[in-house]
Nucleic acid binder design. Structure first.
Lengths: 217, 217
DNA sequence: CAATTAACGCACTAACTAGTTACTTCTTTA
DNA sequence: TAAAGAAGTAACTAGTTAGTGCGTTAATTG
């Protein structure tokens, strides 16, 4: 009987595509890690969702943690690259700052996995991000961008002097991040549907107000 | 041989104390859940750290999730009770608000488990907190407190009108919470030790400035 | 087209994990 | 002080889980 049925019948001849498989795994992993955290995520589930064999995960990413690290790096690179595409350096300082606040909010809103991935990484004391050099480089660009907006605003006489760009950056992230990452407990604590259409609209307006008042003379 | 050695020798006669055992379990669980999240926490580890038998956990708390729920409730009740003890209603509105901002910051700083527990609960879409009625009641008091500070400030002509107390509350939490819960990734992203003594001092000052500018006329 | 390489898949394992069974030991109270 | 009840323990189970060994099949290249 050996060698008789080389091609098992009734199974489609698989098309081989390493890049596509890798991409499917990464996509499934992102969702699974975001939903359950690093510890709660199941490698078998990721493989199934990716329509890939579990063996492939270990082939491409070495380990569950290796996979997590790649997912996390990709997530950071994505937001950093989207920020760069805003071209804030070409805009009026006030307009640029408001645009950044709005962008940050909308990015978190559209990519809630980013929030949970970052939370998960902090639970693990950033051990995966520590290894990544490219993340530092791209983050530096963001701080420089905010720094330059602030400087131009000061020169134009509309922003006050002495605002630390890093603190400002952190605060821009904070006012959106906290609201959205804690939307489930928040909805209970504040007895208000934080994700309702008008609640979201009210929040982004409030955040813009917060940041503008912070930097204005 | 039966009944011959009723008391096994060489073992201390255990002192029985249900409340103390329960408390030790809760304390160990809080640390374990905070460190590893609900999914990553190990019931065996909690039992060991609590110097209790695992069976006791199931005796007192029914399940791992039951234990988590109690830990979480206790954590919320603790911060809400500490807030009430500030007696902000007796203070000048500006002083009261600054005191609340400072308190919130210091509470997070001294109780980092609170942050991870809340993060973990949000990963699970607040399914445990949902069941708790007492949390809603105590949260309402906090919102009312901030609400009353705002009102008194408006009457005194020092705060502007129309600031939503819930949004303000969220923002007070946000500016501290985000910084501290993301201190590990933050230290990498911003290439600065966010937990250094002067960095912490700088941050709380920045946060006070942010909140004050937000409410001031 | 043969040989090599790379993608893919099956079935397994060793360690772990939440929860339980069946018991012993201490404390309280009628 | 006997009996009941509550606190505490050890050993176990049934199901998971990350990770692998090894064989198969498709694509590539000399």
């Amino acid at each position: 009987m050996t060698g008789e049925q080389t091609k098992k019948p009734g199974r489609k001849p698989r098309i081989r595509d390493a890049e596509a498989t890798k991409a499917r795994i990464l996509d499934a992993a992102k969702k699974e890690f975001a939903k359950n955290g690093l510890g709660g995520a199941r490698v078998d589930d990721i493989a199934e969702k990716a329509k890939a064999n579990k063996r492939m995960i270990y082939h491409y990413f070495e380990s569950k943690e290796g996979l997590f690290q790649t997912v996390l790096e990709d997530a950071y690179l994505d937001i950093r690259s989207a920020e760069q595409k805003l071209h804030l350096e070409d805009l009026d300082p006030k307009v640029a700052l408001e645009k950044l606040v709005r962008f940050t909010w909308e990015y978190y809103l559209k990519n809630p996995e980013f929030l949970t991935l970052v939370n998960s990484e902090n639970l693990h004391r950033a051990k995966h991000l520590k290894k990544s050099e490219i993340i530092k480089v791209s983050s530096r660009k963001l701080v420089n961008m905010v720094s330059s907006i602030l400087e131009r605003g000061v020169t134009a006489g509309i922003f006050r002097d002495g605002v630390d760009p890093v603190q400002l950056n952190i605060t821009i992230a904070a006012v959106g991040y906290y609201y959205l990452t804690n939307r489930f407990t928040g909805t209970i604590i504040y007895e208000r549907d934080l994700m309702a259409r008008d609640a979201l609209e009210q929040r982004i307006q409030f955040n813009i107000e917060t940041i503008m008042r912070l930097v204005t003379v």
